[in-house]
């Protein structure tokens, strides 16, 4: 057991210093960090087994993978799938639609989650606070299939309650589900409805850690409500906000598949097609796992660059970053 830990630690310790580590230093490091390294061991094993070992399978992005032939047995095609993807005539439209949806999520859904958490935090009555918290997180548990069919019901032409209401207010006679102009608002609306309450949980956990004495001291100093939020509450969740923001930039090309697929139809497809739905059609329905993997790989590289980039930016502004 001990040798295993040491081996792990050497390889782990080796890469912080470019020059070959001195024997004595390695030993000292090992002894000094033995408990920490021991604690981390199961996690390291997990990542090696279940996260990195399967990655040898990513080579199917460069092959024409047929499950029956196995990974090595499938034909090597090099960059072919990547070329097909980037030269595809729909590529600019897919990119545009994907980025717009990602931006809406980043600039609308994400801030709303923070606002909601702050508002919940300001509720005084504990019973009310808990009740509202429980209510708003319920939608998270309904699958997209259910959410989309409920949307269909609410916006049903002729008798849907929201269809009636919105058309009365706007003085129109629109089928919101088919109108390309309404596609993105509906997607954001569903996303906000389903996930905002759930998203507040992380912030509320952070807020639970705020030292109550700080508030008391601020009150005695005569700080108002807004000042307390600005100077105590927000700073205490700032690092959580930044971490979530950094992680979200890495997901910018992942819009999710199910919601968009279920909400798209013949009349709104020009705005609804995104990378994830495209991969579903081309990769999964047409049985081309290789193509789907190639697109996944391309997206991952962009995601990694974005995460490292925003993390670097965060550090430049003296924030903590994720690592």
């Amino acid at each position: 057991m001990a040798t295993l830990i040491e081996a792990e630690a050497v390889s782990g310790g080796a890469d912080i210093t470019p020059r070959p580590p001195n024997r004595r230093n390695v030993r000292e490091t090992l002894v000094r960090y033995r408990w920490l390294l021991f604690l981390m061991l199961p996690g390291i094993i997990y990542f090696l087994l279940f996260r990195f070992w399967p990655m040898y399978g990513a080579q199917i992005a460069f092959r024409d993978y047929i499950p029956f032939l196995g990974i090595e047995g499938s034909q090597w095609v090099g960059w072919e799938h990547f070329e097909t993807f980037f030269t595809n005539p729909d590529f600019p439209r897919l990119l545009r639609n994907t980025l717009i949806l990602a931006a809406l999520s980043l600039f609308i859904a994400f801030p709303l989650t923070i606002v909601m958490a702050l508002l919940l935090n300001e509720l005084r009555l504990n019973i009310l606070k808990r009740t509202v918290q429980t209510l708003v997180y319920v939608p998270h548990f309904l699958s997209w299939t259910v959410v989309v069919s409920l949307t269909g019901l609410l916006f049903a032409v002729g008798n849907g309650p929201l269809w009636t209401l919105l058309n009365d207010v706007l003085g129109t006679d629109t089928n919101f589900l088919a109108d390309p102009a309404w596609f993105r608002p509906l997607i954001v609306l569903q996303d906000v409805w389903k996930n905002t309450g759930w998203g507040t949980i992380i912030f509320l956990a952070a807020l639970a850690g705020v030292d109550q004495e700080q508030y008391e001291a601020a009150i005695i100093d005569g700080a108002g409500r807004w000042q307390r939020v600005w100077h105590i509450t927000l700073p205490s969740i700032r690092s959580t906000i930044i971490v979530l923001l950094i992680l979200q930039t890495g997901q910018i090309l992942n819009t999710g598949f199910e919601q968009i697929y279920l909400m798209s139809n013949a009349l709104n497809r020009t705005v609804a097609d995104v990378f994830d739905t495209y991969v579903y059609f081309v990769g999964i329905q047409q049985g081309s796992y290789s193509y789907a993997t190639a697109v996944g790989l391309a997206k991952a590289i962009v995601g990694v660059i974005l995460i490292f980039g925003t993390n670097w930016l965060a550090k430049r502004f003296n924030q903590q970053g994720i690592f």
Partner: peptide, 12 residues
Amino acid sequence: TNPDYATMDPAT
């Protein structure tokens, strides 16, 4: 034809 022919859920 029904006005929501492009969006009606086949389950309904």
